[in-house]
Amino acid sequence: MQRAKGIEVKSVVVQVAATLALAFSFTTVVVLLSGEPPLAAYGHIVAGSVGSWLKVAQVLRVWVPLVLCSCGLLYTFQIGLWNIGVEGQVILGAIAATAVLRWGAAVGAPTGILSLSLLAAMGCGGLWALAAGILKTRGGVNEIFAGLGLNFVAVGIILWLIFGPWKRPGIASMSGTEPFARELWLPTVAGWRISPYALAAALGVLVLTWWTLKYTRVGLACRAIGRNPHASFLLGLRPDRWMLVAMMLAGGLAGLAGAYQVLAVYHRLIPAISSNYGYLSLLVVMLANYRWVWIPPIAFFFAALNVGSIQLPMMLQMDSSLAGVIQGSLVLATLVVHGWARRRQRAS
């Protein structure tokens, strides 16, 4: 028993080492191809992300929405759904939050308006996910294509709002809607670059997700259906209903991330409000091997890459998309190495 465990730990270490080696040799070759020094590039990313407390706060600002979306995706991955529509759910959450702030700005009582906008964002994100879920369970549309389609529709809606009904007086442009007054910003502490409320909320959601998935009926149903939908149906679980529940939970958390982008980061609605964090969260959860413990560190690492790579165009003649190359090659290397190990295991 002890020995078997030792071998398992060893094989995990070998797998992780192989993954890192594969991913980083690939990105290094890519950087070399572009004719720039790889070590300097990595150095700038590290210095630009964890080089000072200010930068760490910047990374945490990206970490919050990634954690929120990733927690939501845990529910859908557990039940066996590919919720690629998470991007659109973030956008709808941002739209709902903006709508409440716009209509509520005249009413007063900022705290009430802020909480209302958070609720609206969760509701709208959840409904957008529900639409994809119903298309899947009732309409026979694969959730990947339903989700993708709804993502593009969400982009259409946000562009229409920014250039149409919600345009700035006189000028409609990609720079977004009129910024909100300061009292409608998510409250923060003087001297902090990141709202402590947002950090607390992200941690709270993380713990709640862990608890829900481990100890409640919802978690049990998700796991059972994800492993064997047919058997769980025979045991009296309704897979289609639980899938809708999982989608709503994922959409609600994604909507919350969208509201955070509006209330705490941009303070207005911009076309790129989701910043691709929905898609990035799918990568986070895949790299975390669908386990909640790994989400906070991996989300932090991905956020650091995103923030640090902003230095690249300034310090070197490089595009900041190197972050995406590193993130993608890490997940890809994980899939390849994991598949390879499983194949060898089966062969032996």
Binding site: W82, I84, S321, Q327, G339
Partner: peptide, 23 residues
């Protein structure tokens, strides 16, 4: 390797796009 074609394809979608912008 028996990995999900959807997962691999999705990762490649994002990565190839960034690779194209970078290079």
């Amino acid at each position: 390797l028996g990995q999900s074609q959807v997962a691999v394809g999705f990762v490649l979608t994002l990565m190839c796009r960034d690779l194209a912008y970078f290079l």
